[in-house]
Amino acid sequence: MKIVTQVKLCPSSAYDADALAATLRACNRAANAASAVAFTKGLKRRNVLQDAVYHRVKADFDLGAQAAVRTVKKVCDAYATLRGNLKAGNLGPEGSKRRTRAESKPILFRENAAQPFDDRILTWNLDAQTISIWTVAGRLKGIPFVCSPEALQLLASRKGESDLVMRDGMFFLIATVEVDEPETFEPEEFLGVDLGIVNIATTSDGRILAGRRLNRYRKRQRDLRAKLQQKQTKAAKRRLKAIRRRESRHAADTNHIIAKQIVATAERTSRGIALEDLKGIRQRVTAKKDQRARLSSWAFAQLGAFVEYKARRAGVPLVYVDPRNTSRQCSECWHTHRSNRVDQARFACRSCGIVLHADLNGSRNIAHRGEAAWQRGAVKRPSTV
């Protein structure tokens, strides 16, 4: 299976940092020029577009031969992704408006957007933890990088391109790594996981994972941003820039921890994992005004992706189930009615009288559906997602 790993570059001088930043600017300006030609003339295939713009982007933007080739490929990949999203309808609630905008103008790349590098213009020295990279100012050699021991071990299996990324004045390389995927074992039972906003994840074992703490942190961040935006001072703007993306990094770290705990529990107990298929949930749910911010910041898709790839690396079977009525159905007698869900936290079956935590009841229903899906052979996520 393929996963990505990230390392942080540590340029030893301002000259090296400026050269890396200038390279990103030149490559993305060249990508915008190539994108305009691709859009105007309808040249979306790589070989055709490369014949049309190769010499121009090399001369006008001072790119090397291989850098020009990677830039053209980046443009073609962007149009292929856009075409796939338009075909699949993955454009969100305002799909028709976004389709019109996407089809009416060429794709534009930010000046610091990621740029792919292959082995001809990027060389890794894992023993010394340095890289050699082509830039518009010449080849930079011996640029150190830092990463975790686990990431360094993964880089030994690196294949294909690596992306140079500039984020908040810092430079990162994101590499694709090929790792062996163990064979999936035959589960004895399934661990159901109910995803929610108040409680991010609740397992069928009755374990509630990281709800209140993350929600309190997000509220503090929203309040802080609102205060700083009202001030409109230079100091407030510097502070806003400093805390930018902090909440998303914190949420991603929390999701990693939750996913690791879920997969470790399933692996230790020889169980599979059952998750809800929540694609399109934001379009189906109508939230109250005071709940919209919490719903929009709910990173359930990210958590599901983390659980999925960690489960694959551990050989733990995973299935996605239909989430309909998991909160209204009794996990003991299967009676389904909306009045069974008394409030957000309490479930009381009107048929058998059992009283449970609502999320625990939902996770047990998900576990039952996961076992049924496994018996039917539904091992992977539905192809429509």
Results as ranks from 00 to 15, higher is better:
residue 3 I to E: 12
residue 7 V to H: 03
residue 9 L to T: 05
residue 12 S to C: 05
residue 18 D to G: 15
residue 21 A to R: 14
residue 25 R to C: 07
residue 25 R to I: 00
residue 26 A to C: 15
residue 26 A to R: 12
residue 27 C to E: 13
residue 33 A to G: 05
residue 36 A to L: 05
residue 36 A to S: 05
residue 37 V to M: 10
residue 37 V to Y: 05
residue 41 K to Y: 05
residue 46 R to S: 09
residue 59 A to F: 04
residue 62 D to S: 14
residue 64 G to A: 02
residue 68 A to P: 04
residue 72 V to N: 00
residue 74 K to P: 10
residue 75 V to M: 11
residue 76 C to F: 04
residue 79 Y to P: 15
residue 82 L to K: 09
residue 84 G to K: 09
residue 86 L to N: 10
residue 96 S to V: 15
residue 97 K to I: 01
residue 99 R to P: 00
residue 103 E to K: 15
residue 107 I to H: 09
residue 107 I to D: 04
residue 113 A to Q: 02
residue 116 P to E: 12
residue 116 P to D: 07
residue 117 F to K: 00
residue 118 D to Y: 02
residue 120 R to Q: 02
residue 124 W to L: 11
residue 124 W to F: 10
residue 127 D to E: 14
residue 128 A to G: 10
residue 131 I to Y: 04
residue 137 A to D: 11
residue 142 G to F: 02
residue 143 I to W: 03
residue 154 L to E: 11
residue 156 A to Y: 08
residue 156 A to Q: 08
residue 157 S to Q: 13
residue 160 G to K: 02
residue 162 S to L: 00
residue 179 V to W: 00
residue 179 V to C: 11
residue 180 D to P: 12
residue 182 P to S: 04
residue 183 E to H: 14
residue 183 E to A: 13
residue 188 E to N: 09
residue 190 F to M: 08
residue 192 G to F: 00
residue 192 G to D: 01
residue 196 G to C: 00
residue 196 G to H: 01
residue 196 G to F: 01
residue 197 I to T: 07
residue 199 N to E: 06
residue 199 N to S: 14
residue 199 N to W: 12
residue 202 T to D: 08
residue 206 G to F: 04
residue 210 A to W: 09
residue 213 R to L: 12
residue 216 R to H: 15
residue 216 R to Y: 07
residue 217 Y to G: 13
residue 225 R to C: 10
residue 225 R to K: 11
residue 225 R to L: 01
residue 226 A to N: 11
residue 226 A to D: 03
residue 227 K to N: 12
residue 230 Q to P: 03
residue 231 K to H: 10
residue 232 Q to D: 14
residue 237 K to I: 03
residue 239 R to L: 08
residue 240 L to C: 06
residue 241 K to M: 06
residue 243 I to A: 06
residue 246 R to A: 14
residue 251 A to Y: 04
residue 253 D to Q: 14
residue 256 H to C: 03
residue 264 A to Y: 06
residue 265 T to A: 09
residue 265 T to W: 00
residue 280 G to P: 05
residue 282 R to P: 14
residue 282 R to C: 11
residue 290 D to R: 12
residue 291 Q to R: 15
residue 301 A to H: 06
residue 304 G to K: 07
residue 308 E to G: 10
residue 311 A to G: 01
residue 311 A to P: 00
residue 314 A to G: 01
residue 315 G to A: 04
residue 315 G to F: 01
residue 319 V to M: 04
residue 320 Y to I: 05
residue 321 V to T: 02
residue 322 D to H: 05
residue 323 P to Q: 00
residue 326 T to G: 01
residue 327 S to V: 03
residue 327 S to K: 03
residue 327 S to I: 00
residue 328 R to E: 10
residue 329 Q to G: 02
residue 331 S to R: 05
residue 333 C to I: 06
residue 335 H to T: 07
residue 336 T to L: 05
residue 337 H to Q: 09
residue 337 H to D: 13
residue 338 R to S: 14
residue 339 S to H: 02
residue 339 S to T: 07
residue 342 V to R: 06
residue 343 D to M: 09
residue 345 A to W: 02
residue 349 C to S: 06
residue 356 L to S: 11
residue 359 D to I: 12
residue 365 N to Q: 05
residue 370 G to S: 01
residue 373 A to H: 08
residue 374 W to N: 15
residue 376 R to M: 05
residue 376 R to C: 03
residue 379 V to P: 07
residue 381 R to T: 08
residue 382 P to A: 07
residue 384 T to H: 15
residue 385 V to Q: 11
